[in-house]
Amino acid sequence: MHEYSIVQSLYDAVAGQAVRSGAKSVHAIHVRIGEMSGVDPGLLDTAWKVFRLRTICETAALDVEIVAAEWRCSLCGGLVPRGGMLTCGACGAPAKLKQGDEILIDRIVMEVP
């Protein structure tokens, strides 16, 4: 389960931002996780709840927005439906993943003095 490693990186980024902003605590973290990112949102949340204990993020909720995979034709840009062959039905060109592989921090809500 690599979600603990992801949470370690998430914590490092958030704590760094909190220190730079002179925050007293972190209240919420909004992240975007793509369906094709290889990160499981449920496991990420579990790992976060363990990792945040006795840190500046102790009470910080992790708000995860799941981004659905969107495949588009690499030639004509048409939508290629999920679940089938990843080639364009109209022109036969290979599809390209346009969204759905994100592992991103969107926003941090901090308490500042």
């Binding site: 990186s9 992240v31 926003r107 308490e111």
Partner: peptide, 16 residues
């Protein structure tokens, strides 16, 4: 409480 939202738009694995 004085809550401040900060837009980050940072890749979590940017160090890696």
């Amino acid at each position: 409480t004085n809550l401040v939202p900060v837009e980050v738009q940072q890749r979590i694995l940017s160090d890696n």
